[in-house]
Amino acid sequence: NQASVVANQLIPISTHLTLVMMRSEVVTPVGIPAEDIPRLVSMQVNRAVPLGTTLMPDMVKGYA
Rank of each mutant, 00 (worst) to 15 (best):
N8G: 07
R47E: 08
P50I: 05
G62D: 09
L19R: 14
G31L: 01
S4M: 02
V45M: 06
S4H: 01
G62F: 09
Q2I: 12
A34C: 07
R47Y: 10
S4L: 02
V41H: 03
D36Q: 14
A48L: 14
A48R: 14
D58C: 06
N8A: 15
S24H: 08
V20H: 12
N46E: 08
L17K: 00
V6E: 02
I37Q: 05
T15N: 04
V60L: 08
A34H: 06
V26N: 12
V49N: 02
Y63N: 03
V20R: 14
M43K: 11
S42Y: 12
T15G: 06
T15E: 09
I13V: 15
P29E: 06
N1W: 11
N46L: 15
M22I: 08
L40K: 00
V30P: 15
A7V: 06
A48S: 15
L40W: 03
S4K: 00
M59G: 03
N46K: 08
I37C: 05
E25F: 07
Q2Y: 14
P33E: 04
M21Y: 05
T15F: 07
E25N: 08
A3L: 12
T54N: 03
A64C: 09
P50G: 11
M22E: 01
V20K: 12
N46P: 02
V26L: 12
M43G: 02
I32M: 03
M43Y: 08
P29M: 05
V20F: 15
P57F: 07
M59E: 02
M59I: 05
I13S: 13
A34R: 06
R47K: 15
V30R: 14
A64L: 15
P38C: 07
E35N: 14
T54P: 07
T18Q: 14
V49H: 02
I13H: 14
Q9G: 04
N1T: 13
T54L: 05
S42P: 00
R39C: 08
S42D: 13
P57G: 07
D36A: 13
Q44Y: 05
R23Y: 05
E25M: 13
Y63D: 03
S24A: 12
L40E: 00
N46T: 11
S24I: 08
P38H: 11
P38D: 10
Q2W: 10
V41G: 00
N8V: 12
T18F: 03
T53K: 10
T54W: 03
R47S: 09
G62H: 12
V5R: 01
V6D: 02
V30F: 07
S4V: 02
S14G: 13
I11E: 00
S14C: 07
L55E: 01
A7C: 04
A34W: 06
D36P: 01
V41L: 12
D36C: 08
R23P: 01
I32F: 02
V27Y: 03
M59D: 12
V30Q: 13
V49Q: 02
P29G: 03
S4W: 03
P38Y: 13
A48P: 12
A64K: 05
N46F: 06
L17I: 07
M43H: 09
G31T: 01
M59Y: 10
H16I: 13
V6H: 02
V60E: 02
S24K: 10
M21A: 03
V30A: 13
K61H: 14
H16F: 14
Q44I: 09
T53H: 13
T28K: 13
P29Q: 05
L40I: 12
E25A: 15
Q2T: 10
Q44E: 14
T15D: 04
L55V: 06
L17R: 00
V27H: 04
G52S: 07
L17F: 01
P38F: 10
M59R: 00
G31M: 02
K61C: 06
T28W: 14
I11R: 02
T54C: 05
M59V: 06
T15K: 06
R47A: 07
I11P: 02
T54D: 02
V60I: 15
N8I: 05
V45K: 00
P50S: 10
A3S: 13
V26K: 09
P29F: 04
V20Q: 11
V45Y: 00
A3H: 12
N1A: 14
G62R: 05
R39F: 10
P29L: 05
H16E: 10
G62E: 10
Q9H: 08
Q44S: 11
H16K: 14
G31V: 02
E35I: 14
L10Y: 15
R23L: 05
L40R: 01
M21F: 04
P50F: 07
T53Y: 10
G52L: 04
L40D: 01
D36L: 13
E25W: 08
N8L: 05
D36N: 14
T28E: 15
S24L: 07
V41D: 03
V30E: 09
R39A: 07
I32H: 02
H16V: 12
E25G: 12
N1E: 14
M21N: 07
P57K: 06
R23V: 07
L19I: 11
V49F: 03
I32D: 00
I13A: 15
A7S: 10
N1P: 11
L10N: 14
M56W: 05
S24F: 05
A64V: 12
N46S: 11
T54H: 02
L19D: 06
G31S: 01
M56A: 08
K61E: 15
V20Y: 11
T54M: 03
T53A: 10
P38E: 11
V45P: 02
H16Y: 15
P38G: 13
L40T: 01
V41F: 04
V60Y: 01
G62S: 08
L51Y: 12
N1D: 10
Q9Y: 10
T18P: 00
V41W: 03
A64F: 09
I13M: 13
R47L: 09
V6P: 00
E25Q: 12
V5F: 03
M56E: 07
L40H: 01
V6G: 00
R23H: 05
V41S: 03
A48I: 15
A3N: 07
L55R: 01
V26I: 14
A3I: 07
T53Q: 11
Q2L: 10
M43V: 04
P33M: 06
L51S: 12
K61L: 14
L10P: 09
A64Y: 11
T53F: 11
R39V: 13
T54V: 09
I37N: 01
P12R: 08
N1F: 11
L10E: 12
L55M: 09
A48G: 10
S14P: 01
A64S: 11
A3M: 13
S24Y: 07
N46R: 09
R23C: 06
G52K: 02
S14I: 04
T15Q: 08
Q2M: 13
V27T: 12
V6R: 03
M22H: 01
Q44A: 07
A3K: 12
I11F: 01
G62T: 06
I13C: 08
P12A: 10
